[in-house]
Structures are given as C-alpha cells and as structure tokens.
Amino acid sequence: MQDAITTLINSSDTQGKYLDDASLERLQSYFRSGEIRARAATTISANASTLVTQAVARSLMYTDITAPGGNMYTCRRYAACIRDLDYFLRYATYAMLAGDPSILDERVLNGLRETYNSLGVPVGATIRAVQAMKDVVSDLLGAEAGKEMGVYFDYIASGLS
C-alpha cells in the first residue's frame, strides 16, 4: 500500500529527484491534518457497529432485499452483508489515515465486483449501502472529517460500479 508520503517519495524517486515545492506543500497539508485524522479514526472505531447498523437501516433494511427471496434474506446472508460493510468502514478508515486510497484497491476492491457477481450479490444495493454509510459517518464526524472519509467511500462505490 501507499500513503500520502510514500506516493510522493516514489514518484520523485523514479525521476531521481528531491520532492519539489508542490509535493512538499501537499505533504505539509497532510502533516497538518494529523489531529483531525486521528480523531476521526478514534470516533469511527468507537462507533463502528452502530455505523453499520445505521447504514443498513438507511439503505437496505426496509426494502425487498431483506424479504423472502431477497439477497439479505436468511440470517446467514444478512450477517455476510454486515460483515462486508464492517470491512468497508475499516478499510476506508485506514485509507483516510493514510491519505491515499491504494489500500482499498489492494485489499478490498481488486476482484470484488467479480466475486459479488459470481455470488449473486447485487452490486447496486451494495453501492447504496456504501453511500448510506458515507452519510452516517459524515453525520457523526462533522463536515471536515466527514468530507475526507467521503472521498474513500466514493472510491469504493466507483470501484464497484
């Protein structure tokens, strides 16, 4: 995986250069965001299961998907769904701390759509749940940190579609 620091180092190294002013400025704003990122991670980690519950309530719970014949019908499927949402939340939090989405590709998104398709998991409903999670996380964290987390939920959603 990469983070905000190593992506800049790697791209400078392939050119054999020091980080230029533009890169150093980007680093500086990342360095300055440490407190807000750490606080967001603490809050999410303390509320992870509630956030998943709320995201499901907002997006999937009261639709046909939880009724007989739906893809979240049977406890086993329901459990698999909330487990995946739990993963999405945790990996989005990692990416937010890193200031870089590469860990989402490496550990979540690569092959996920194909896996879901072969298992018959509806991708559209999954994306709706990810977007609902973005909203409930933003409600909890407030605008600034919510916006930063939103970047990575959007990344998951677009990686699935």
Binding site: R32, S33, A38, A41, S45
Partner: peptide
C-alpha cells in the same frame, strides 16, 4: 482499528512534519 497508542504515534509523527 488502530489502537489508541498507535494513533498517538501517528499524530505525534505528523506534528513533526
């Protein structure tokens, strides 16, 4: 999730930016 101690290390590191 990263433990409180790890987040403190993270934050302290970024402060030295």
């Amino acid at each position: 999730y990263p433990a409180p101690k790890e987040l403190r290390i993270f934050q302290d590191f970024l402060k030295t930016g």
